[in-house]
């Protein structure tokens, strides 16, 4: 068992990762579901009684409970991967990005004792800074508002939609990158 765990625990090559994402999509489709995470946000609003406020939340959410169970599983999967399949080294970020991040006050972990390289502790672990809380709230709001407005996120549009050759998904992905590039090149360097 240990050699297998060690094998899985090393960082995965991107080609393996890309293939595994499609395996997840196939398993969902073969089970009768589909691969799209952001619709769960709408389901959660519907369960919370959102139909009193908008017709958008008036639908039979019980049909979509399977997707919430999938999300619950992904939290467990994250836990398993974080605590039992830990890579020996942090995420290997390119030198150029590391140098740039240094200039905006974010240190990329060099050893696993400094961090896993999943989230920067300067932002995620310091909730005493009002800016960090504002970033979390605004970022989350944009994710929830934008994905439902565009009717899909990375899983629904960039993976499911593009692989089913949906032009709408290509347009949505152009939007994703427009927003991402604005924040990365013009906003974060000026506020961090």
């Amino acid at each position: 068992m240990q050699p297998l765990l060690d094998f899985i625990s090393q960082p995965w090559h991107w080609s393996i990762s890309g293939f595994m994402i499609i395996l997840v999509m196939f398993l969902l489709m073969y089970s009768g579901g589909r691969f799209g995470v952001s619709s769960n946000l709408r389901t959660l609003c519907a369960i919370g009684g959102g139909e009193k406020f908008s017709d958008y939340f008036a639908f039979d959410w019980k049909k979509d409970v399977w997707n919430l169970v999938f999300v619950a599983g992904s939290i467990i999967g994250g836990f398993i991967a974080a605590f039992y399949l830990t890579s020996p080294d942090p995420v290997q970020i390119s030198e150029n990005t590391q140098t740039y991040l240094q200039t905006i006050g974010i240190k990329t972990p060099q050893t696993i004792s400094e961090g896993t390289g999943f989230v920067p502790k300067e932002i995620f672990n310091d909730m005493s800074k009002p800016l960090n809380i504002i970033l979390m709230i605004l970022g989350g709001f944009f994710i929830g508002f934008g994905t439902r407005y565009a009717n899909g996120c990375t899983s629904g549009h960039a993976i499911s939609g593009l692989s089913n050759l949906q032009l709408a998904s290509l347009i949505a992905v152009v939007g994703f990158f427009t927003g991402g590039l604005i924040i990365t090149w013009f906003v974060l360097p000026n506020i961090l």
């Binding site: 999967g77 970033l135 989350g140 994710i143 508002f145 934008g146 407005y149 994703f176 590039l181």
Partner: peptide, 26 residues
């Protein structure tokens, strides 16, 4: 809706480094 909604989501993706799937995994 695709362009405006998509762009708004992109803002959130780059700020938090997470899209809806990863945010639950984290």
């Amino acid at each position: 809706s695709l362009l405006i909604g998509g762009t708004i989501f992109g803002l959130g993706w780059a700020i938090t480094g997470a899209c809806p799937g990863p945010m639950f995994v984290l």
